[in-house]
Write a protein that binds this DNA or RNA. Structure first.
Lengths: 221, 221
DNA sequence: ACGCGACTGGCAGGTTGTTGCCACCCCTCC
DNA sequence: GGAGGGGTGGCAACAACCTGCCAGTCGCGT
């Protein structure tokens, strides 16, 4: 057994151990909140839980479920559709943030689980039960939640951008002039400029500088 | 004792324990590399080491010392000067990256230390000795290192930007037209446009869209 | 066939942005 | 005092961008 509890913080190694320690808590929870840096972040843990039967494959009704993702998690149309479907079928709330977040899970606001570096072999998770620390993590989560964009709003915004050739974004971010950019796409300038105007509108930008900032912020370039 | 070694990964809690476990290794190391998300990241650990006398307050001569920081660590002029001084007095190499990094320390490429979430109370550190994992972390570090900008180059670039009123960046990122922006700064349009042109040059941008991307990338807006 | 809607691309008028020129002002130094 | 350097701001020429207009093309439906 490679976990050790000290001062309200337990560190576990890998998803199996995480489930062994927290699976029953998650299964019985009425309020679960996740912040995930990628779509896959908590997938391994969920699979481990389902395999053992500790965690149901479908969350029970009546559980308040919130998830925060980074923009790049929802930029792919298929992923965005999956997320939207999950919202509908489970009454979950999903928001997208451009703030910096770490992989975090909050269970009933009494237990916080923080994911370690996913690149360092088997992942460590810190399971925090110390009330002050949990409260601090929860407060941070709430702050990010409040500032985040609802998935449907984000998706409406990005759906428009997605339909406009990503090549336009690439050319713009390289500082290519409109005429040269149009030529390189085999378009007329008028059409290229139409695309740029649509993109600006979708980004809610009044100027090209502002559009550049927004595009980078959203992880589009 | 709250550490436990398993499969070449040991997790320690707090800087005192980190020093107890690794201080002597760091003191004897000939090649130390850090990646730090903030200027303070490894400060607590160094202080703990100095307090116990395990780690010298000045790194011994002949140690290869490399540090990678995020742009926001070097945007403050005073901080940048401190970093430059450290380079000179210790023969250290410092680079700035816009890539995503985690707090990482590499000791003689045999031991990797990864910092956990700094917001979760006492910080956990994963001390990795398992060779494959260390090699993986080292490879990631090297990739980021190669792609990073030398501190002096970065500083030269940003020094220029720093001297140009940050208000210009703010106005640009809000999409304000030149004439209105100039008026709001109490400048003539010609002068405002000089500032913008200088900024564009400092950012190495050919267009305003590109400049917006770059500015965001550097954490300037 | 015809009508309609959607889209393209050239053209042109207007706006915004880029930059050189030059008069003017201020400060420092001899 | 004059010379020189640095900076500002108005003006203007030019380039780049924004967008309406309209002719033409294509696809679809009746």
């Amino acid at each position: 057994m490679s976990t050790r509890s000290a001062e309200g913080v337990a560190v576990v190694h890998g998803e199996d151990e995480l489930v062994a320690r927290t699976g029953h808590l998650i299964a019985a929870a009425t309020d679960v909140a996740f912040a995930a840096t990628t779509l896959h972040t908590w997938r391994a843990a969920r699979r481990a839980g389902e395999a053992t039967g500790v965690v149901a494959s479908e969350p029970p009704d009546g559980v308040r479920l919130r998830k925060i993702y980074l923009p790049n998690a929802a930029l792919d149309p298929a992923a965005a559709r999956d997320l939207a479907r999950f919202c509908e079928s489970h009454g979950a709330s999903i928001r997208i943030t451009t703030d910096d977040i770490n992989d975090t899970m909050l269970i009933d606001r009494r237990i916080a689980i923080l994911g370690g570096d996913p690149r360092a072999g088997r992942r460590t998770y810190s399971v925090i039960t110390q009330p002050d620390v949990v409260a601090g993590v929860a407060a941070l989560f709430d702050a990010v939640w409040r500032n985040a964009t609802d998935l449907s709003d984000f998706d409406a915004q990005v759906a428009e951008i997605r339909d406009i050739a990503p090549q336009v974004l690439d050319l713009l971010s390289r500082g290519v002039k409109d005429e040269a950019a149009a030529r390189s796409l085999g378009l007329g300038v008028r059409t290229y400029r139409r695309r740029v105007a649509e993109l600006m509108s979708a980004l809610g930008a009044e100027s090209r500088f502002q559009a550049g900032v927004r595009a980078r912020e959203l992880g589009l370039v």
